[in-house]
Nucleic acid binder design. Structure first.
Lengths: 176, 176
DNA sequence: ACCTGAACACCGTTCAAGT
DNA sequence: ACCTGAACACCGTTCAAGT
């Protein structure tokens, strides 16, 4: 409602408003028109920063993954992996189906390349060779993404179940 | 284009046309209007069989899962499980992100209850108690759903990688 | 009961115009 | 370069009317 400079748009301001809208009203509520309204701007102004709605949605998914804190190399590798995947699950869980539906494309984004690099790094330091590390990471990532999508109701029980399954997988990889 | 009786609509005819449209042009191409066009019917006729588009989309996802052939109890349990999840992956793969985005709701549908029953049954017969069977099944289901969503390009390499990860998990569950 | 039109309240996006 | 209107080609869905 303030005028002049206050309304200076930016890629970041658009993404913030969009993620706010998605979090409070769900992915279906995100329209270019409503987003413009929320930013006190005409819908078309958004197209200065994103080619189309698809690109905005992709950026939103990548943004969420970028927020993840990657582990520094002190703790035991299984604990590092647990922490990383726990965080990933939290981020995905904020809007599971919204982000998940963008996953196929997000996979080749810098944000996910960075995350996967960190995951494989943990496994490499633990003694897996490059090929094993890649396979194990892919399996753990798949499990985590799939788990958020098959979520039912009870949040506390879900967290416990997630850890149970994760321990099961970590047991499966042996200890090189 | 034939007239009269030929145009008798049904829930099944609508679902068939919808899945055809999704398979050939992607989930975004599925609109009530285009669907009506393809069925040679006015868009509103579809609402006789489905309350709204959301319900149609849910039915589409459930339909895909219902097509799965559940294993009869002859083979070794690990091989039965491999066959079941392999099939599930194939069905999801036809339109991964489309079906996956419906997963949260599909989870409590009869079709998925039936699938999960079959999965837990395999584990029960293998000697797991009820609670273990539920956890292991949930983990395997999560892995499979997540894997299809994190798919990259090469189909043959993906199948191999899927099996590698699955073997890893099956190794983790031990042999009760 | 099932299908038809027309109409309503929305969409994403193009484009020509303004600053 | 960035924002504005208006306009175009679509949406899902309600409703009153037809059979």
């Amino acid at each position: 409602v303030a005028k002049g400079d206050r309304n200076k748009l930016s890629r970041e301001r658009v993404l913030d408003a969009a993620s706010q809208l998605v979090r409070s009203e769900g992915i279906d509520a995100l329209s270019m028109r409503r987003l413009g309204q929320r930013l006190d701007v005409w819908p078309m102004s958004i197209y200065t920063y994103f080619r189309d709605k698809d690109e905005l949605l992709d950026a939103l998914a990548e943004n969420a993954v970028e927020e993840l804190e990657l582990p520094s190399g002190r703790a035991l590798w299984r604990n590092q992996m647990r922490a990383l995947l726990h965080d990933l699950r939290r981020v995905l869980g904020d809007d599971a189906s919204g982000i998940a539906s963008r996953m196929p494309r997000a996979m080749s984004s810098p944000a996910l390349t960075r995350l996967s690099g960190a995951g494989r790094e943990i496994l490499s330091r633990a003694g897996f060779d490059e090929r094993e590390a890649a396979s194990v990471w892919r399996a753990l990532l798949s499990y985590t993404v799939g788990f958020t999508l098959t979520a039912l109701g009870d949040a506390a029980a879900e967290t416990k179940e997630f850890e149970r399954g994760l321990d099961l997988m970590l047991a499966g990889v042996g200890r090189p």
